[in-house]
Design a protein around this nucleic acid. Sequence first.
DNA 1: GTCTATATTCCGATAGAC
DNA 2: GTCTATCGGAATATAGAC
Lengths: 216, 216
Amino acid sequence: MEAVKNLDTSTRILNAAELLFIDHGFDGTSMRQITAAAEVNIAAVNYYFGSKDGLFQAVFERRAEPFVRLSLAKLTELEATPQANNPIAIAESFLSAALEMGSNPEYGGLVFVRLLARTYVEPRSILKEKIPQRYGELTRRYQDALERALPDLSSTEVAWRFHFMTSAMFNAFAGNHVLRLFTAQPMVNARDPQRVAQMLLPFISAGLTSPAAVQA
Amino acid sequence: MEAVKNLDTSTRILNAAELLFIDHGFDGTSMRQITAAAEVNIAAVNYYFGSKDGLFQAVFERRAEPFVRLSLAKLTELEATPQANNPIAIAESFLSAALEMGSNPEYGGLVFVRLLARTYVEPRSILKEKIPQRYGELTRRYQDALERALPDLSSTEVAWRFHFMTSAMFNAFAGNHVLRLFTAQPMVNARDPQRVAQMLLPFISAGLTSPAAVQA
DNA sequence: GTCTATATTCCGATAGAC
DNA sequence: GTCTATCGGAATATAGAC
């Protein structure tokens, strides 16, 4: 939680807020905690970001923007190869974008994945309006690619599988365990993202390419 | 959010608190909101549950207890049949326990799954001590059953797949979408749990039974 | 840009009458 | 068991000096 002194004020706030939001959620984090951790004045958040909501949005966008850019680039790259219609290769593109973010210190390293995992379960509807519209291209293009690669599935079924895939993925990286509610000793350890990805890939690949559900 | 008048006070509080916790999280819900929705006096929560933390614990346990009982019964039942070592049958047992909870009004219907999905991402460590110890049998027995059914996988890899499975499952039932952060128009709709289960099953089955990850 | 001081609201919890 | 009244503190936000 050490604030690095030779960064400007707004960056110090973003860094401190990001970690606190991840660990305690939006409602569980106060401006006082944030400004104390960032070693800036209490009034600085409002000066730079207008409000606590504005700060959260800025925290999120700082990570989301490069992630969206990176995963779209990965997909574009893939679509120029013969693997363009291989569903597993498409999943790997998405996974590797998250993984590269997670291993690039410039993008906050692993912090990014945990932030994403925290944000999407936040009850507040802070950024469920403006931001999603801007980034719609991400889901649209991956959904289209998966639909082409899985022609035997309805587009609804493809969307569900894309959803299952991302749920498993981000919760695994972020260390969110449902089962921890029922066991004192956690059974898995998410410390090494490369290892998590290795465990994820067979599960996701098989799940995506499984035959269509039998209609009721 | 209508409080049913002919229930006793503590039940009315539990019902109101459950819905509010699901929608706004623990920190996002105040005692005043709860008592207003339950149409009881502000002091009633402390009288019946001691504190806000105590209330949350009671809210969770009311649903967890029957769920654990039900899923263990399902597994015991399965283990008496020739399907005992079929990983897909084991997954179906777990899934159907959640599904039965979700369709039984006595257990709160769908509310239960949403509560579980909310609880396990709560940043607060409210119930991460006492309760998990009591329910450890659930994860232990399913983990053991899956290990027997998947002898080619290490127990670590089985644990990861169990984790992936539950992540996909509970987030799907609860309507938590990572992708909603990147798209204005949600692609899937979790309203009908039977339908969600139908989409889940092929994905989970294939994921569980996929060959082991290649060691790096 | 950074600070102090403060306005205003809401929080969880409890004392004590009935 | 239920109520009113209130305590003590912490929340976000801002006005205004420097």
